[in-house]
Computed example of a mutant assay.
Amino acid sequence: MKILVDINNQVLFSGETIEFGIFDEPMLEKWAIMDDKNDILFYVIDDSYSLTEVLSIPDDLQPNKYCYTVEKGFYVNPTYSEPINIETEVIKLQQENAELKAKLDNIQEVLDYLVMQ
């Protein structure tokens, strides 16, 4: 298995086949990465990454979640945070919004009552 690591040792991509060269248009040097699990070929333009071959990768490997050095091997990136599920976040915010509106309505009713006194 091969991995691409940036200058901060963050693992960005992994795949059985990763090559650097000129592929298709435009005529730029780039990384060609074959994701064998999903049978997807994609390209990454950056010449500051380094290619490393490893025996195995963590089961939960995601871009930026792990760092890698030859000395330490894989280790959790101290600056990594889990991605936010947008749909779950929207539902949560809608519920909070409804609760705040209800509280505001209650406060308005109390204020109206106090003004009437």
Score class of each variant (00 low, 15 high):
34 M>H: 15
34 M>P: 04
34 M>T: 08
34 M>L: 13
34 M>R: 14
36 D>A: 07
37 K>N: 07
38 N>H: 11
38 N>M: 07
38 N>I: 04
39 D>C: 05
39 D>G: 01
39 D>Q: 13
39 D>I: 11
39 D>V: 03
39 D>A: 04
40 I>D: 08
40 I>Y: 08
41 L>K: 08
41 L>F: 15
43 Y>R: 02
44 V>K: 12
44 V>R: 10
45 I>H: 07
45 I>Q: 08
45 I>P: 04
46 D>Q: 06
46 D>K: 06
47 D>F: 05
47 D>I: 09
47 D>W: 12
48 S>M: 13
48 S>N: 10
48 S>L: 10
49 Y>K: 01
49 Y>F: 14
50 S>M: 04
50 S>Q: 07
51 L>I: 11
51 L>Q: 05
52 T>Y: 13
52 T>H: 15
52 T>V: 12
52 T>A: 12
53 E>P: 05
53 E>D: 13
53 E>V: 13
54 V>G: 00
54 V>D: 01
55 L>F: 06
55 L>A: 13
56 S>D: 06
56 S>P: 00
56 S>M: 09
57 I>C: 04
57 I>Y: 00
58 P>Y: 06
61 L>T: 02
63 P>A: 13
63 P>D: 03
63 P>I: 05
64 N>W: 09
65 K>P: 03
65 K>H: 03
66 Y>P: 01
66 Y>D: 01
66 Y>R: 00
66 Y>T: 00
67 C>H: 01
68 Y>Q: 00
68 Y>W: 06
69 T>C: 01
70 V>W: 04
70 V>K: 09
71 E>Y: 00
73 G>L: 01
73 G>F: 05
73 G>I: 01
74 F>G: 02
74 F>L: 00
75 Y>G: 00
75 Y>D: 00
76 V>L: 14
77 N>K: 02
77 N>W: 09
78 P>E: 02
78 P>Q: 02
80 Y>E: 02
80 Y>H: 03
81 S>L: 08
81 S>K: 14
81 S>E: 10
81 S>D: 08
81 S>M: 07
83 P>L: 08
84 I>L: 13
85 N>H: 07
85 N>W: 03
87 E>M: 10
88 T>G: 12
88 T>D: 15
89 E>N: 10
89 E>P: 04
90 V>K: 10
90 V>F: 02
90 V>I: 13
91 I>D: 10
91 I>Y: 15
91 I>C: 08
91 I>H: 14
92 K>T: 07
93 L>Q: 15
94 Q>C: 08
94 Q>K: 13
94 Q>M: 14
96 E>K: 13
97 N>C: 13
97 N>Y: 11
98 A>H: 12
98 A>E: 11
98 A>P: 11
98 A>N: 14
98 A>M: 03
99 E>G: 05
101 K>G: 06
102 A>V: 07
102 A>K: 12
102 A>W: 08
102 A>H: 15
103 K>N: 15
104 L>K: 11
105 D>N: 12
105 D>L: 11
105 D>F: 12
105 D>E: 13
106 N>L: 14
106 N>E: 14
106 N>W: 08
106 N>Y: 14
